[in-house]
């Protein structure tokens, strides 16, 4: 009986954890797609930032390599580290949104001297 409840407990826990993982993965994928869309929009406005997803960016460390924020998100997701994957996907999305707003805000920039 004891053994049985132990097995049940383990089973319940592992289902629980794996559903966390699934939920995290889904949340990451959603954020990743939003980050790509936000940066595409910034790019079209001429306002994308260097480190959001630039191929040459060395901004965030993942393993022993440095890369752009979105690439770091992908790198962590590939390792199953969804806490970091989500954090960086969110950061890349934020950069895309800020870059776009900045470009819109500066649309009529000109001399003031």
């Amino acid at each position: 009986m004891k053994q049985f409840s132990g097995i049940v407990l383990v089973a319940v826990l592992s289902i629980g954890f794996s559903s966390f993982a699934l939920a995290d993965e889904a949340a990451y994928k959603k954020l990743h797609a939003e980050a790509v869309a936000a940066n595409d929009k910034a790019l079209a406005a001429g306002g994308e930032w260097r480190d959001a997803r630039g191929k040459k960016s060395k901004f965030i460390k993942c393993g022993d390599k440095k890369m752009s924020i979105l690439h770091a998100a992908e790198c962590y997701a590939a390792k199953g580290d969804y806490d970091n994957a989500i954090k960086y996907a969110e950061m890349a999305k934020d950069q895309g949104e800020q870059g776009y707003r900045q470009a819109m805000n500066q649309k009529n920039a000109g001399p003031r001297h």
């Binding site: 306002g47 930032w49 480190d51 900045q102 500066q106 649309k107 920039a109 000109g110």
Partner: peptide, 12 residues
């Protein structure tokens, strides 16, 4: 000219 006078990048 707009490019030259527009703030850009994370450092604005």
């Amino acid at each position: 000219r707009q490019f030259f006078y527009a703030k850009r990048g994370q450092l604005n």
